[in-house]
Design a binder for these strands. Sequence first.
DNA 1: TACTAACTGAAACCATTTTTCATTTACTAT
DNA 2: ATAGTAAATGAAAAATGGTTTCAGTTAGTA
Lengths: 149, 149
Amino acid sequence: MVSVSNQEDAILSRLRGEGYKITPQRRAIVRAILSSDEYVTPELLLIKARQAFPSLGRVTVYRTLDILSQLGLLCTLHPEGHHPGYTLGRLDHHHHVVCSGCGRVSDFSEHGLEELEKRLSRETGFKIEGHILEFLGLCPQCQETNNEK
Amino acid sequence: MVSVSNQEDAILSRLRGEGYKITPQRRAIVRAILSSDEYVTPELLLIKARQAFPSLGRVTVYRTLDILSQLGLLCTLHPEGHHPGYTLGRLDHHHHVVCSGCGRVSDFSEHGLEELEKRLSRETGFKIEGHILEFLGLCPQCQETNNEK
DNA sequence: TACTAACTGAAACCATTTTTCATTTACTAT
DNA sequence: ATAGTAAATGAAAAATGGTTTCAGTTAGTA
């Protein structure tokens, strides 16, 4: 298992390797994403990262998200009925289950999609470039909370 | 095979059945979605539907999309790197392949996801409510066009 | 044909994201 | 250590995308 601080180091050194500077703002942003079980929206991320770096500007959040996204380090989530958001996850190909209650994200691997991809290529003639597979559901905690209501 | 005009009738009478009025604006909007192979964004839809009904207002497009969405008649698409959009498709559960070049949408069925859903419930404890599965790729036409460049 | 609830479109409004630009800072090479 | 430089920052303004409001219009009905 990879610890969060190792993940942080890995991401920061990747940034450094790509010629980006490691600023305290970026550190705070990366740490804020990593330190939450839930996925983040830009606004939420701003609030979280400001706890560590109060003068952080909104623009910097967007810019950092862009960079992380271009480097393929960010996963985008589209939970139905909620705002889209981001999570920084494992570097290998994987998918997510998002909690419709609290936004908590859980990862999983699924390798059965390659066959489906081939079938689709054959049937539709499309040259497949990628896919989204996301599940939406209630996490164990939110299931309990809702039952108590 | 179901023709587009039958689909149009089916949608309009569904609307009527739910107590909504059939206005020329709504007719134009529904027809505009159905008559394009590509998925539509609200803005694109406004332009297309105005060809049939020039004074159509932007608000009416959003309102109609809302209604169709609430009735479960609309499918939402999230093609990576593009704006999200909509398509009016088959009424049964299905998925989409979206062309990254022109936005053309193709449907497919996949029933292998139920097992995966069970596995996820078991492994993560989440109570699964739904999922998104979308493929992105180049349609046959766009593959040719790109090769000629 | 008259009635009424539903619908419409213009404008104002709001939230989110992008652009601009003057200032500051992380890193490199002395 | 320190100076130099490209990169990064944040405030403000602008753009984008979507929603609300409201007075006037219209589809469906009786």
